[in-house]
Amino acid sequence: MENELRQKAKELLESGQVKQVIGYEDGSTAFKSTPCFASSPEDADRLVWNPTCVNNLAVYLPSAVKQGKVAVAVKPCDGRSVVELIKEHQINRDDVVTMVVPCPGVLNPDALADIDPKTIKNIEWKGDGISVTTDSGEISIPREKAFLDKCLSCTLTDPAVTNIKLGDSPERSPLKDKDAAIAEYEKMSVDERRVFWAKEFTKCIRCYACRQACPACYCKECFVDKNGQVWALKSTDPEANWFFHMTRAMHLAGRCIGCGECERSCPMGIPLTLIGRTLEKDVEEMFGSGAGQDPDALPILGSFDLTKDPDPCPE
């Protein structure tokens, strides 16, 4: 698969069809990969595709397309971010070539908890799960432990903006219900949820890694960064943190594709995807469709359909 990816990337770069290919390359340790920006056919040899390729590379597209056409390696989930970016007019469909990689699931770092990280030499897909090569031999980790939660419930097929399909999508049924996590959450009363989030948001240090890693957070100037007319306090008081997160959540309603990059990037371990998924479920229930499906659809909160949409001013 990796060879096929490199080959395609080379062709695209050699023929001048694209200015650069955004993919993954080996990171500073065997259990992390890092985004790779290949602009020459030689660079393409560095591309990798393995369970450590967790990042949603769509985050780079709005700025990358400014230098010319871009090819990007996307997992089916990340592909939905590309759909959103096109739908929201942040990139032109013609400026991006999506290379959809077949994805059995990506690494859940907790899977490595019992392994001395310094001994890890390689991680690859094997059987249903992954195989970790260490100094003292090979360790197989089964699917339910190896992959992120979002992967265990994933039912996604090729995104609507697929240009190049690499390999065959692995056939498998989800192991978990997509809403298992929020089912628990929804058992809480409104007051209990308030207490839950108040506690989580106290941890927030306002590093904005969540926002910066999010492909849907592309605003030129975030409301929280406004300096002249201050919209939101920069302080980390519970109320100010609450305001930042709730406003961000509202700005993402109907647009969050659930890639989980916000939560993965948060150094403080705040369960941010719970917000996105809860909102997404509401949007699906109210509007009958969700984010990242149809690049020609109108953004849900950016349009109003008298015949279908819920009455904004009910009696």
Binding site: T34, P35, F37, V59, Y60, I205, R206, C207, Y208, A209, R211, Q212, A213, V230, L233, K234, S235, S265, P267
Partner: peptide, 25 residues
């Protein structure tokens, strides 16, 4: 620079980083 997301994760967790902003409420 191509890949850096320009967040504050690295510097806010760094024990030697010390920069601050002054704001009013």
């Amino acid at each position: 620079a191509e890949k850096c997301l320009a967040c504050g994760a690295c510097t806010f967790l760094c024990p030697t980083c010390h920069c601050f902003d002054i704001q009013e409420c």
